[in-house]
Simulated scan of single mutants.
Amino acid sequence: MYDEILVPTDGSEAVETAIEHAFDLAATYDATVHALYVVDDTYGGAGLMGVDAQDTVSELRTMGEEAVDTIATRGEDRGLTVETAVNEGLPHEGILDYADDNGIDLLVMSSRGRSGVSRFVFGSVTERVVRLSDRPVLVVSRDVTDE
């Protein structure tokens, strides 16, 4: 049923439940998990407060690489095949493009990401992906105990 499962991440603990769901589904269907971090290269505010936009994107890319590498290690420890990618662009577009380019059968996403403004932004990314995707999207809520 599912051969390729995509789990986008923002590197936060809020994505943990989605990662576990993706792993469980991959184990059930002998699927490959794709861990994706999309660096928002339009990152708001870069350059406005003396921050170099390229430095900000570079820092976000490093964070993304750490996030997907962590998912890969955890998945491989469970005997799963995990592909990783860190791309740049608008997050929802990057997720949808990756899904198209890699024959993704199912996207597994968190209903929330980081706290504060980032949490709002990630939630809106999930909403956009759900609205625009032509493939199934499983939206996983964080455990209530995490709040």
Results as ranks from 00 to 15, higher is better:
Met49Thr: 09
Phe120Gln: 11
Leu107Ala: 14
Asn102Ser: 13
Val7Leu: 11
Arg74Gly: 08
His34Cys: 07
Thr9Asp: 05
Ser111Ala: 15
Asp41His: 04
Val140Ser: 04
Val86Glu: 05
Arg61Asp: 10
Thr145Met: 06
Gln54Pro: 00
Gly94Phe: 06
Leu106Cys: 03
Tyr2Glu: 08
Leu48Glu: 12
Val15Ser: 13
Leu36Trp: 03
Gly45Ala: 07
Thr73Ser: 15
Gly47Cys: 12
Val125Arg: 01
Val129Tyr: 08
Gly113Asn: 05
Gln54His: 08
Gly116Asn: 07
Thr62Pro: 00
Gly79Thr: 05
Glu4Asn: 15
Gly113Asp: 07
Tyr43Glu: 12
Ile71Thr: 09
Asp101Leu: 07
Glu76Ala: 13
Asp101Thr: 12
Thr17Ser: 15
Val121Phe: 12
Ser124Trp: 00
Asp55Met: 11
Arg78Phe: 06
His92Leu: 02
Gly64Arg: 09
Gly75Arg: 06
Ala53Cys: 05
Gln54Glu: 15
Asp97Tyr: 02
Met49Gly: 07
Gly45Cys: 10
Arg142Ile: 06
Asp77Trp: 04
Asp52Ile: 06
Ala46Ile: 08
Leu60Met: 11
Ile95Asp: 02
Glu65Trp: 05
Ala53Glu: 13
Asn102Asp: 13
Met63Trp: 10
Gly75Ala: 09
Arg131Val: 11
Tyr2Gln: 06
Leu106Met: 10
Arg74Glu: 15
Ala72Glu: 14
Tyr37Ile: 02
Ala31Val: 10
Ala67His: 03
Val130Lys: 01
Ala72Phe: 08
Gly123Pro: 04
Pro91Met: 05
Glu13Ala: 12
Ser111Leu: 00
Thr9Asn: 08
Leu106Trp: 08
Arg78Leu: 13
Ala18Ile: 03
Asp10Leu: 03
Arg61Cys: 02
Ala27Val: 06
Val125Phe: 02
Gly44Val: 14
Val130Arg: 06
Ala67Thr: 01
Asn87Gln: 12
Leu36Arg: 03
Glu83Trp: 03
Ala14Ile: 05
Tyr29Pro: 04
Val82Ser: 06
Tyr37Gly: 02
Val39Tyr: 03
Ala14Asn: 07
Glu20Pro: 00
Asp30Ala: 15
Asp143His: 11
Thr84Phe: 00
Ser133Ile: 12
Glu93Ala: 13
Met63Gly: 10
Leu138Trp: 03
Asp10Phe: 04
Leu138Cys: 08
Asp100Lys: 08
Met1Thr: 14
Ala22Gly: 10
Ala67Pro: 05
Val7Ser: 11
Thr84Gly: 07
Pro91Lys: 09
Val38Gln: 09
Glu76Pro: 00
Glu93Thr: 15
Val117Arg: 08
Thr56Ile: 15
Met1Lys: 12
Ala22Trp: 01
